[in-house]
Amino acid sequence: MAIQRRAFVGGIGATVAVGLAGCTALGGDESGDQPTISDETLTLTTTTSTYDTGLLDEVNGSFQDRYGVTVDTVSQGTGAAIETGRSGDADVVMVHARSQEDEFMNDGYAINRRDLMFNDFVVVGEPDDPAGIADGDDAVEAFTQIADSESTFVSRGDNSGTHTKEREIWAEAGFDDDFGEWYLEAGQGMGEVLVQTAQQGGYTLADRGTYLSMIDEIDLEIHVDGPVEDGPEILANPYGIFAINPAVHENANYDLAMAYIGFLTSVEGQDIIDEYTVEGEQLFFPRALAEEPNYHQYVPEDWDGSDQ
């Protein structure tokens, strides 16, 4: 036992030594490792759900191979990702809350929006299901039952796309602000909230992608499925992508942003999204390619065609 422990300490020591050796060794030949066609950097702000599932590493790796452009991905909640774009610190934004995207477009900061992909939200909770919502096909009804039984519900509480959707469902169920002590606002990312829900016991609303990517780490079950598994339409989770308007923020890297949007909405980019699986499950479904025109992806949903 003692020997084993020493081996572990030795392992950590070796880790540090290798790490330090790498610091000096990597300093000089760093640029040689990467294909550098343009040697430029594109800043993408996006949601924790696209990042934590590992999808972006896959997509960005292909984009970098193709264009030699490094994509710096900052994963935040949808609200924060949009705010970062608003102050001109991002070039391209990928989020999933149409109402917030529309407001951003109306304010003139976002242009060239495209529908990118979709998956769905699922209502997950502890396996013994104290509120008795299992196998329901109505998310609003399930939320009402959670409230009536005063079961713990962990909310993202961070103005993210998932949080926006959750509040929309609560509003449908007739709750606006009058929650009880059973309602917890975590103010954290999806992964953290899932971990918290699993440890505390209770329910939460999660995007299917993050839930599936963490299924090994947490003991939670899907109680209400989304439209991907024929669940209610209210649980649909569409992702949009758009560039920051270079007329508002002059230094926005607009041409690269459009190259990135173009790559993601191309046949190749959509194939990567289509083929991306975690543990054999597809996480995202491509949505950008359609033979029929889809004008609504470019403009706010309530736009009536008039000029201002």
């Binding site: 490792d33 990467q34 924790t48 934590d52 972006l56 590493d57 896959e58 997509v59 960005n60 790796g61 970098q64 490094t70 994509v71 710096d72 991905t73 900052v74 994963s75 954290q188 990312g189 992964g191 953290e192 899932l194 971990v195 990517s213 963490m214 780490e217 947490i218």
Partner: peptide, 26 residues
């Protein structure tokens, strides 16, 4: 911004922010 490239090379990811990220993902 806790940024790492697609090939896993850290740009602005430090030990502390990496720990935070790993914990977030369980």
């Amino acid at each position: 911004g806790n940024i790492a490239n697609a090939d896993g090379t850290s740009v602005t990811r430090t030990l502390t922010t990496a720990i935070q990220l790993e914990a977030r993902q369980g």
